[in-house]
């Protein structure tokens, strides 16, 4: 399942950031997101989280969101995996 979450999350980032197909495959745990990509502002992050809820079938509360989970791809993936394990 973890592998599937990883694939889905790369797909979501590809769609939100308008990346060329395959580019997100090169993301590593350290790839910077919020604060590193200028197009990822609060509105875009809100869209990203909403899309994660829909496609990963999870619910994200306001309290779940912190800077660390949004800062890197690894942080976001760990968060998504933990949320999916909960549900």
């Amino acid at each position: 399942m973890d592998n599937q979450t990883d694939q889905l999350l790369r797909r979501i980032l590809t769609d939100v950031l308008g990346l060329k197909d395959g580019l997100a495959d090169g993301f590593t745990a350290d790839t910077g997101l919020f604060g590193h990509l200028p197009e990822l502002d609060s509105m875009a992050v809100a869209g990203l989280l909403t899309e994660m809820e829909d496609r990963l079938d999870i619910v994200i509360e306001d309290d779940d969101i912190d800077g660390e989970m949004l800062e890197t791809y690894g942080g976001l993936l760990a968060f998504a995996e933990a949320k999916r394990a909960e549900s």
Binding site: S42, M43, V45, A46, G47, L49, T50, D62, I65
Partner: peptide, 10 residues
């Protein structure tokens, strides 16, 4: 929901 979330994030 999405716009409220953007506001809480900002």
């Amino acid at each position: 929901r999405q716009m409220l979330r953007a506001r809480t994030l900002a």
